[in-house]
Design a protein around this nucleic acid. Structure first.
Lengths: 142, 142
DNA sequence: CCTTGACTCTGTAGCTACTACGGACTTTAC
DNA sequence: GTAAAGTCCGTAGTAGCTACAGAGTCAAGG
């Protein structure tokens, strides 16, 4: 199977596959007489594994660990579980952060809609939001 | 005010301030006789503006636009509103995506907890999840 | 006055996960 | 036979910083 077929079958972009090879996530594949990469089913499976991991938001390093655990015959399910739960916690944190942003944005946008013309409340929010303390140090005046 | 004071007052990392200058988000500041950057209050305000924009998840390009609109005396509140609403929509989309990831992860993690020993359902999920169609093309067998 | 330590300067390289190019070669289709 | 499509490799670009190295500057203590 050539690289473009492997790309189609795995859901990975063609250039991404070469990238995964370069960073050691994929082993160097067999080559045809003319030097074209030739992928076997197991390698396409591995690409799909990576692709699904990415869909779940795992980093390449996490996927690297998961692949190692997958290759390992004496299955250490506990380690996999730790990676997955840590990652889930990370995702939840990112969701919380985005929620905070969205809430704050909704607030300033809503205010703007009802605001008087002449001063934009969105820009005001950016100008004044959670204003940190001024530097009162004498040097600051220099 | 020297750069470290400006950093403390604005919430931007010292090296980040230099970076903003390099990419043209901050104008080149005045310099002392010895070449140290000297920030005036208005510039620290601008840094805070950027910092708050980042807290709300705006990209540097979006912030660049907002700064332009802020500098503009004939306030175009409508443009600001468009940027903010577009950004909010983008954040909501990212939240949805992360939610999908979290839900799927929760599912496979929960299955794993109740699964039989000897085969990890998390790894199985990555191996088989939403399996794409095989390449049935004859060339794939080569 | 001199030293010591903290600060700042510039320029460059690193990070994640790709994506896109250029120029050469090979394969495929007509 | 020729043209189009595919593949090769190496390099550079993307966002938004962060982290160095090596040199110069400043303030305080002895």
């Amino acid at each position: 199977m050539k690289i473009s077929d492997a790309a189609a079958a795995s859901g990975c972009h063609l250039e991404t596959i070469r990238y995964y090879e370069r960073v050691g996530l994929m082993p160097p594949p067999a080559r045809t007489a003319s030097g074209y990469r030739a992928y076997r089913p197991a390698e396409v499976e591995r690409l799909r594994f990576i692709s699904r991991g990415r869909e779940l938001g795992f980093s390449l390093e996490e996927i690297r660990s998961l692949l190692r655990l997958d290759d390992d015959s004496k299955m250490s399910c506990g380690d996999v579980d730790v990676i997955a739960r840590t990652h889930l916690a990370d995702i939840r944190q990112r969701i919380d952060e985005l929620h905070r942003m969205a809430t704050e944005l909704e607030r300033v946008i809503a205010e703007c809609a009802g605001g008087e013309r002449g001063h934009c409340t969105i820009l005001n929010a950016l100008r004044e939001m959670g204003a940190a303390s001024e530097c009162t140090n004498a040097r600051c005046r220099a």
